[in-house]
């Protein structure tokens, strides 16, 4: 198909999460690989159904937390014991006892940055222009519609056939959306 490059995929719009889940399972069984589901809220078990890998966000957060921990220790040790040593009520220049609160806070702060910005990065946000927004019923996704898109990049994709397939799964509406 010559115009395949300008086509993003075929939308199947479902009424309920269960229908969507069944459609995903059926699509995978039928050999489709390039799928994406769009839903108003997270659906339990959808990742398994789609065969998605678990999120790697945890590792990002652990790395960020480790950086925060290191910064906190170095900051307190360097400022207190090296750059600006000052005897304060007989406390040591650096000791783990009083260093713990700031170590904790900075670890949490950087971990939280990792979680939030890592999540946005993994999701490719901000992304204000996306082919999905070409779908005439895209507004429903954040309300009560459950949408499955079979993308044009799929080797099995074929506009007519895929539409048939989605309708057969009970899609209330189908639409071909452009890139």
């Amino acid at each position: 198909m010559a115009d395949k490059t300008t086509i993003h995929g075929m939308v199947g719009d479902f009424d309920s999460p269960d229908q969507l889940m069944d459609a995903i399972r059926a699509a995978r069984k039928a050999g489709y690989t390039k799928l994406e589901a769009y839903t108003p809220f997270p659906i339990h078990g959808i990742d398994d159904a789609m065969g998605a890998k678990p999120s790697i966000l945890g590792y990002i957060v652990v790395c960020c937390g480790a950086v925060g921990l290191t910064i906190a220790i170095l900051l307190q040790w360097w400022t207190g014991a090296v750059a600006y040593p000052l005897v304060i009520s007989g406390k040591p220049m650096f000791a783990f006892e009083f260093a713990i609160p700031i170590i904790f806070e900075l670890t949490v702060l950087l971990s939280a940055f990792g979680a939030v910005f890592g999540m946005f990065a993994l999701n490719g946000l901000p992304k204000l222009h996306h082919p999905l927004f070409n779908y005439s019923g895209a507004e429903g996704i954040t309300d009560d519609r459950f949408v499955l898109v079979i993308e044009a990049g799929d080797h099995q994709f074929d506009a007519a056939g895929t539409r048939e397939f989605l309708l057969a799964q009970g899609a209330a509406k189908t639409e071909l959306i452009e890139e």
Binding site: E36, I46, G58, M119, L125, P126, K127, L128, H130
Partner: peptide, 20 residues
């Protein structure tokens, strides 16, 4: 930010929410 509610979005979102 162009949120679309894709399964990938929700997957990372839920993980982020749990971690937060």
């Amino acid at each position: 930010l162009g949120w679309r509610g894709s399964a990938t979005h929700w997957k990372n979102y839920e993980k982020a929410y749990m971690i937060l």
